[in-house]
Amino acid sequence: MGIVNYILPFIIFLLCVIILFSKKDYFSFFLRGAKNGLDGAIKLLPSMCALIIGVNMLLASGATEYLADWLAPLFDRIGVPEDIFPLIITRPLSFGASLATFTDIVTRCGVDSYAALCASIIMASTDTVFYVSCVYFSASEIKKTKYFMPVALFVMAVSVFLSCILARIFF
């Protein structure tokens, strides 16, 4: 894990060298960029508020568990273990919720079990599709996203199946 910890400090180190040894006033560029970032983050709040409220309501209502109970046996038949189904539902919605379901799977099935390994690969190779698209597009006030959602969800489904196949091959 050593190298990973070096990436960010090294970038900062490099920039500090540039700031110190250059005639241009690079620090003022940094401040200008940081100010733009601040404006961008503020713009996110309205849509973020809506999305998080929606996701929170859904998770609190218990709908995800119902859905998981209904659909899991179906998925079990095509090679996706029943235990990871709640993860498939929470993964595109929220990182916090998916991490909680992931932890739940691991404690229930054991960290080196087939289900936990599938879940690990899914966690690592997919992202919170709804959250990401909400943040990316709403920052620049884009309302029509055309074919993005279907494609992103399809890729996510492919990733789930592939994860299960790979877990079977590798472990």
Binding site: I11, L15, S22, G37, L38, A41
Partner: peptide, 18 residues
């Protein structure tokens, strides 16, 4: 997010100018 965005946009600006 404000902090992270300020940091990375600042870094980006330097990388761009250089």
């Amino acid at each position: 997010l404000i902090g992270v965005m300020a940091l990375w946009n600042g870094i980006m600006e330097i990388l761009k100018e250089s």
